[in-house]
Design a protein around this nucleic acid. Structure first.
Lengths: 173, 173
DNA sequence: GTTGCCTTTGTAATAAAGTTGCGCGGCCTT
DNA sequence: AAGGCCGCGCAACTTTATTACAAAGGCAAC
């Protein structure tokens, strides 16, 4: 099934994502329906199905402007579907999303955000504001490469760097 | 009261901590009783008391070879004290420890480890092994500085970088 | 020395985050 | 039509974290 048919409503106000790229190269940036389409493509490329439920979860996730917990999403989807959606279903789907680079987990907040450029693989950096709770996504391959290199230097085989900076954003500063 | 009087037993086998320093400078490394003493000094320098309870929590924490959850510690202290010690007491003390650089939190594991060099302030890096669950502590000021700089470049005021690398250690590789 | 204050810990309840096992129903294949 | 796989529902449960308030102990002023 394709996104947009039947049950899944489009957002009234489009969600936005702040993305800054310090290493020079272009990302395909997505928002709104285009973002969902990109997510669908990415998920299917990973050999997974884009179901109504998954579309709803992604839709809910992408509407949050701050990292959302699985329970936040369960609640949002429950509301939009007029029925109770259990957290564990959401967890399953979020795990899938994270695996397919369609969503990312902010470890220090136990929360998730949609990936605005699922087509492009990066070790991502989150700037987590303690004032407003937002998490800005930044990429910097030089830093992530350095971190991986430091790990290898210590005899460690790096798989997934977690880089999150706690502090205050420009608005809350 | 001073640590070592009366109720708090010293470990039979001393705990160890793997610490690697890639940026060239020396740390004062501590283990066993010396570690506890260093922790006490650091905590008191932060204007906090070194109580029996806090000594016990630090003692328990430092005996774990992997990051320990607050509940792990509560259990260990309960055992060593022959009475039930509630998790929230442990949380309170761990928060204190983290604030005084006496312990550190591994965000992606919801767990804590003792800091083997509380006297020296660093943004720390954890190499978290998915095989054995251990977390090796590494320091690299170049990387953390880079991360802070990247945050500032994005208009963000960095306070605490979180750097954790998931992968496999030399033994589990 | 007893009164009052401040800090620390205890107790209990509750919230938030994450997991497990099992079963149903749809859909594809044979 | 039968068998198998996948996605999801449902319920129960575990683990992690927080809150509010009471009790206990040390220290200082009176």
């Amino acid at each position: 099934m394709t996104y947009g048919q039947g049950t899944v409503a489009l957002p009234a106000r489009l969600p936005y994502f702040q993305v800054m790229v310090t290493t020079a190269h272009n990302h395909q940036l997505h928002e709104g329906e285009a973002l969902s389409n990109a997510a669908q493509t990415a998920l299917e490329k990973a050999g997974e199905q884009w179901t109504t439920m998954r579309a709803s979860v992604f839709e809910a996730l992408s509407q949050f402007e701050k990292p959302a917990s699985a329970y936040d999403i369960a609640e949002a989807v429950s509301k939009s579907q007029q029925r109770r959606v259990a957290a564990n279903s959401v967890y399953r789907i979020l795990d899938l999303f994270v695996g397919a680079n369609v969503a990312m987990r902010v470890e220090s907040k136990n929360a998730y955000i949609a990936n605005a450029h699922p087509d492009c693989m990066h070790d991502c950096i989150f700037l987590v504001c303690s004032g407003c709770g937002s998490a800005t996504h930044v990429d910097d391959d030089k830093i992530s490469d350095g971190l991986r290199a430091a790990a290898r230097k210590a005899g460690f085989n790096p798989v997934r760097p977690v880089m999150e900076v706690h502090g205050t954003c420009a608005d809350c500063g």
